[in-house]
Write a protein that binds this DNA or RNA. Structure first.
Length: 226
DNA sequence: AACTCGTCCAACCGCAGGTTC
DNA sequence: TGAACCTGCGGTTGGACGAGT
């Protein structure tokens, strides 16, 4: 991949660009012997002509034992969506709740899907325009809608309610407890009958998205971010 | 077959906060 | 106490690759 990239040498003389298998081997051996940390000395002591930062990044994102490779599962996607709604771009924090996944991986995943948001937002704007144009014609209908809120609004409110409650839990619980509640409190929502689909979010986000539509899923979350 | 587009992934950079001396 | 260094985080970049046209 990066073979075509114009990688070279930094001002400090460190090698840059893709890691070779030999470098990986050197780094892995050194860390397994001496442990993580002191990355600057790792770079020197392991015989790697790499910056400490580069060594750390390579270890954390690629060489560290227990890393999962491959696509994120729907469950993991659900957790990411949920935690991002709570904490925003705190990738490292989110990554702690996904064993074997790195912040970089999660960040990359979100970024890929962020583009989806932009598209959805544009669609949403178009919809708003259309709604504006039809506003006068729909006055009577709007009165009806006020009595029976749109499913979309219900969705957003439910997610907001969910986030608020989760945030409260976050304030009062330890990380491990939080992790547990993150998986269990959906049941509470079923009890509240706030969001009939909600448990699906954890089981199969993709299918949920299919059910409610991308716009609905993403628009709701983005509003939450705002 | 060639091109475009979207996604995935690895790696770099700058910054902020922590630690050491 | 403050400067220098280290570490970790979030943002960004850009090549590879597959799917669609």
């Amino acid at each position: 991949m990066a073979t075509m990239m114009a990688w070279g040498v930094s001002e400090q003389g460190w090698r840059k660009g893709p890691w070779t298998p030999e470098e990986d081997k050197l780094l892995s051996e050194y860390v397994s012997l001496h442990g993580e940390g002191r990355w600057s000395s790792v770079a020197r002591s392991a015989g790697l002509n790499r910056s400490g930062k580069s060594c750390r990044l390579r270890w954390v994102n690629y060489l560290r034992p227990g890393l999962k490779r491959g696509q994120l599962t729907p469950q993991e996607e659900g957790i990411i969506i949920e935690l991002h709604a709570l904490w925003g771009n705190k990738w490292s924090t989110i990554a702690r709740y996904l064993p074997g996944r790195t912040d970089n991986e999660i960040k990359n995943y979100w970024r890929t899907h962020f583009k989806k948001k932009e598209k959805c937002s544009r669609k949403h704007e178009q919809r708003k325009q259309q709604i504006k144009q039809l506003e006068e014609q729909q006055l009577e209908q709007q009165e009806q809608q006020q009595q029976q809120p749109l499913e979309h609004d219900m969705m957003i409110r439910s997610v907001l309610f969910h986030a608020e409650t989760s945030t409260d839990q976050k304030k009062t619980t330890e990380p491990q407890e939080r992790q547990q509640t993150a998986f269990t409190h959906t049941t509470n929502y079923d009890q509240h009958q706030c969001l009939p689909h909600h448990h699906v979010m954890y089981q199969d986000v993709a299918s949920w998205s299919d059910t409610v539509g991308d716009d609905m899923l993403w628009d709701g979350l983005w509003n939450l971010d705002d």
